[in-house]
């Protein structure tokens, strides 16, 4: 497969803060790629470099096979962008702004524009100042979905949308994928990411800490195990990959409840050990998406990563 976006070792320094410190990102053509990370991790800085608004201090970036800084104008005929914080011209109506953006990009589809206005329930005659945050966001979304690009860059596009509109947004992204377009989706809404994304990349402090499909990421994460045992749970803590073991007596000491977390690959050994203690009951829970991200957001800082900055 060809890469829609390929970034390697990207660096960007603002004054004394290192916003990007060797970030890697690969987005395959035709996929919906989630771009995740805590606030200030460098997501927006990366996106702005991909749009040619910022000039990288190091590393390489290619968008649709071209240099985003040098070939910005040519490239932007094929790219539609929705910023996280949409500001509009106060004296231009939403309809005018949508048309303006369609003309500024490679053009768009009138019928699709009309259909999107209806689906997003957007009044195109209101002036920029009169729109709420969610409605400003919709103006940018309609302009992006109605345009004829190959790549959609969406930077937290649903902040401010109500749940019904969030649903419409997810349908639209799914349709984009069916049309064969590539989507880079930066988001904090994990249910959205889970529903839409083929693969995700997680960044922290300017470096990519994880990348892959959600299933792959789940395999990298600990499973929680709760077991009710008739015997004493000996030797569990010595097993490799076992964490946070707690033991609580049950039924006035006639049984023990054990809770623990186990790394992928350690489950087999744990089950053997538990079986030796006499299992009365057992539940094993795969990590939720939230746990998965929390672990990546809070985990140890990878070596070489330095300060972050919100941009």
């Amino acid at each position: 497969m060809t890469k829609a976006i390929s970034v390697s070792g990207l660096r960007k320094v603002f004054g004394r803060t290192r916003a990007l410190d060797g970030l890697d990102l690969a987005v395959e053509a035709g996929e919906v790629h989630g771009f995740l990370g805590p606030n200030g991790a460098g997501k927006s800085t990366t996106i702005r470099i991909l749009l040619g608004l910022l000039r990288p201090d190091g590393g390489a970036a290619q968008v649709l096979g071209r240099d985003p800084w040098r070939d910005a104008v040519e490239l932007h005929r094929r790219v539609a962008y929705v910023p996280g914080d949409v500001t509009l011209w106060r004296n231009l109506s939403g309809g005018e702004v949508i048309d303006l953006f369609l003309r500024l990009r490679g053009g768009g589809d009138r019928a699709r524009r009309a259909g999107l206005l209806e689906r997003f329930e957007l009044d195109p005659t209101k002036k920029g100042r009169a729109y709420s945050k969610g409605n400003r966001q919709k103006v940018a979304l309609v302009a992006a979905f109605a345009s004829d690009g190959d790549l959609l860059v969406l930077d937290e596009p649903t902040s401010g949308l109500d749940p019904l509109m969030e649903e419409v947004f997810q349908q639209c992204v799914a349709e984009e994928r069916e049309r064969g377009r590539t989507v880079l989706l930066s988001s904090h809404v994990l249910s959205e990411v889970e529903a839409l994304c083929d693969r995700v990349s997680i960044v922290r402090r300017g470096v990519t800490v994880e990348t892959g499909s959600l299933a792959e990421l789940r395999h990298l994460t600990r499973t929680s195990v709760t077991a009710e045992l008739s015997g004493a749970p000996d030797g569990l803590t010595q097993l490799p990959g076992v964490h946070d073991v707690t033991v609580r007596p049950l039924h006035e000491g006639r049984a023990q409840q054990v809770r623990l977390q186990v790394d992928p690959g350690g489950l087999d050994a744990v089950l053997h050990r538990l079986a030796a203690c006499g299992v009365l009951g057992l539940t094993s829970t795969p990590p939720t998406l939230e746990e998965l991200f929390l672990r990546h957001y809070q985990g140890e800082v990878p070596a070489g990563a330095a300060g972050t900055v919100a941009r």
């Binding site: 011209w89 004296n91 231009l92 109506s93 939403g94 309809g95 005018e96 702004v97 949508i98 048309d99 303006l100 003309r103 500024l104 195109p124 005659t125 209101k126 002036k127 100042r129 009169a130």
Partner: peptide
Amino acid sequence: ADRPGAAAASRRLAGAYGLAWRL
């Protein structure tokens, strides 16, 4: 009060020049 604006942009509001003129 703000009057409603046009539902679609006129032909002249196209590109960077049209926008600058409007602003």
